[in-house]
């Protein structure tokens, strides 16, 4: 099929991810949205890898990298969320403003 179809799907998924990161208050939802963005990127990479018929398959290789890094990042992110929950009993992102100016 034409590369347009996976590209558009990836763009839609990315936008949904961006919406989630910027507008959702629950930190776990934000992390999930970040995952969504990363997977959209993965989809893009693979689609273009096939369309460009890359000999080295750099797109697919990069996708593997991204999957691993996303997994590591989600592990650390969830650990931070757990630590915050334990100390503050709340994980609303817009309530966590300690680094802001008074």
């Amino acid at each position: 099929m034409h590369v347009v179809y996976p590209a558009v799907v990836a763009a839609l998924l990315f936008s949904i991810g961006v919406y989630g990161v910027l507008a959702r208050r629950n930190t776990i939802l934000v992390l999930m949205s970040v995952e969504l963005m990363l997977n959209a990127v993965n989809l893009n990479l693979i689609a273009f890898d096939v369309w460009l018929r890359d000999a080295l398959h750099s797109g697919q290789v990069l996708t593997l990298f991204v999957i691993v890094i996303a997994a590591a990042e989600v592990g650390i992110g969830l650990a931070i969320v757990l630590a915050v929950f334990r100390t503050r009993r709340a994980i609303e992102l817009d309530r966590l403003r300690d680094l802001g100016e008074p």
């Binding site: 961006v18 990161v21 910027l22 992102l93 817009d94 966590l96 403003r97 100016e101």
Partner: peptide
Amino acid sequence: TRHLQNGNAQLYVTGVL
């Protein structure tokens, strides 16, 4: 200008975007 630094991470990300 310091009010830009309000601690809300989502605002920062919006700026980056």
